[in-house]
Design a protein around this nucleic acid. Structure first.
Length: 425
RNA sequence: GGAAGGGUGUCCGAGCGGUUGAAGGAGUUAGUCUCGAAAACUAAUAUACGGGAAACCGUAUCGAGGGUUCAAAUCCCUCCCCUUCCGCCA
């Protein structure tokens, strides 16, 4: 959520920022509501002052065993009614303003390139060279089915499309990737945490999934709970409503979770394989930082995410998303795109964002400075560290051999217990 | 799911209709004392919003929301959460 004060003082800048996000938003209405709101607050408060004074008079009389005059009581009643009317008005304006503000995306940071869509993204760096095979590279779903470690037919029978069943060494590989990621990030100072996969609506609103992206989430209406689309939701909400002391920051978490996405509106895309499933595993990194450090923390978040890909020998590139391609809540996002030899392309495997105070304002999470005791909204960041299914796919596609076997990266072997997956005889 | 008891400031804890933003204690900070420390003493010590250049002024806040009343932390209703006991259960 944006700061109404900031919008009030910089309406043109905010409008321009929204244009860069391909959003034409007129803030005039909001600003009019805001000034109305402040007028009404003034009226309510002076009325309340008057009521408090009169009520005080009554109290004084009562203590002196005197009866207040009927005129005085009548006057107070009149003031009370007037207060109630004004309060109703205030409530209406405020809820209108909130509904409006909740749908406004974050303002892109100055360092974010302006662009319409993903073609405006800036490739920041390449790490490792794309892997090319001397034979025709296969897609991961072909390899996986052949090796009998992936089964999409059974998955679709028991659940539907965009689900996966893992079998045999596939299960161990998936678990190995998860554990490898968690251990690697713990080494970098992230504290491991496991949180619920079902969260309430307030939590979904806190991180920005609601109210705008209701159709993206799986919902259990009966209980008013949502399946998490990412561990970002429960983990960031840990400190909702809290004030953290400067000395406790940054707080860094690594959290493995299954993730659930409806993928509404992506019907034709990535219908095969592990790339776009309704349920997938992910290891997520979440940071709570002081505002002045958040940009540095974003850089280190990106390198922490990239670090695990490097350890696995997976080539990737880092892309700085342009204004038009960024997610709703983000002020600045880097995508990590892993090389997929079967696809002969880079595909997103991690998205690392600095949300600045956008989420913390929605969730009311503050930092308290020990020096001047000032409080302000802290900054939240998160990034995949990284998507497990897509890593699985990358390993299959990049490390496939001509005979159909797949070589497990060195770093994973102590987790898998085997160093190659061979076709069954 | 059934029964009972609770939710007050950084913490403990009083208050159960009026002068209570809230006693008392602890903690923290500053000062006095001391060669220094401890102890003792003194003072300060919430947040949000609105107005103001500022000092400051005003309003709100005792789990959340609603109601009763001239007046609510205090009475009533609804909801949420926590604790204990019973039931059920991986």
């Amino acid at each position: 959520m944006l700061d109404i004060k900031f919008i009030r003082e910089n309406p043109k800048a905010v409008e321009a920022a929204m244009k860069n996000r391909n959003q034409n938003i007129n803030f005039e209405r909001l600003i009019a509501w805001d000034s109305e709101r402040r007028t009404v607050i003034g009226e309510v408060e002076s009325l309340r002052l008057k009521r408090n004074q009169k009520t005080e008079e009554v109290g004084k009389l009562k203590r002196e065993k005197q009866e207040p005059s009927p005129e005085l009581l009548a006057e107070i009643n009149e003031i009370r009614d007037s207060i109630q009317e004004h309060e109703k008005e205030l409530l209406m304006v405020e809820s209108q303003m909130e509904d409006f503000l909740l749908l406004i995306p974050n303002i892109p940071d100055e360092s974010v390139p302006v662009g319409k869509d993903e073609s405006g993204n800036k490739i920041v760096r390449f790490v490792g060279d794309p892997i090319r095979h001397s034979f025709k590279s296969k897609h991961h779903w072909e390899i996986g089915e052949k090796l009998e470690i992936l089964d999409f037919t059974v998955a679709s029978k028991i659940s539907g499309s965009r689900f996966t069943v893992l079998k045999n060494e596939g299960c161990a590989l998936e678990r190995a990737i998860i554990n490898f990621f968690i251990d690697a990030h713990k080494e970098k100072g992230y504290a491991e945490i496991m949180t619920p996969y079902l969260v309430n609506r307030i939590s979904m609103r806190g991180t920005g999934q609601l109210p705008k992206f209701e159709e993206e989430a799986f919902k259990c209406s009966e209980d008013d709970l949502y399946l998490i689309p990412t561990a970002e939701v429960p983990v960031t909400n840990i400190y909702r409503g809290d004030v953290l002391d400067e000395s406790e920051l940054p707080k860094k978490y690594v959290s493995y979770s299954a993730c659930f996405r409806r993928e509404a509106g992506s019907y034709g895309k990535d219908t095969k394989g592990l790339i776009r499933n309704h349920q997938f595993n992910k290891v997520e990194l979440v940071k709570f930082t002081a505002p002045e450090n958040s940009m540095d923390e974003l850089e280190s978040l990106v390198s922490d995410a990239g670090n695990v890909l490097e350890k696995l020998g997976l080539p990737y590139r880092v892309s700085l998303l342009c204004s038009g391609d960024m997610g709703f809540s983000s002020a600045k996002t880097y995508d990590l795109e892993v090389w997929l030899a079967g696809d002969n392309a880079y595909r997103e495997i991690s998205s690392c964002s600095n949300f600045k105070d956008f989420q913390s304002r929605r969730m009311d999470i503050k930092i308290k400075y020990s020096q001047n005791k000032k409080r302000e909204f802290l900054h939240t960041l998160n990034g995949s560290g990284v998507a497990v299914g897509r890593t699985f796919a990358a390993i299959l596609e990049n490390f496939q051999q001509e005979d159909g076997s797949v070589v497990i990266p060195e770093a994973l072997r102590k987790y898998t217990g085997f160093d190659v997956i061979r076709p069954k005889l």
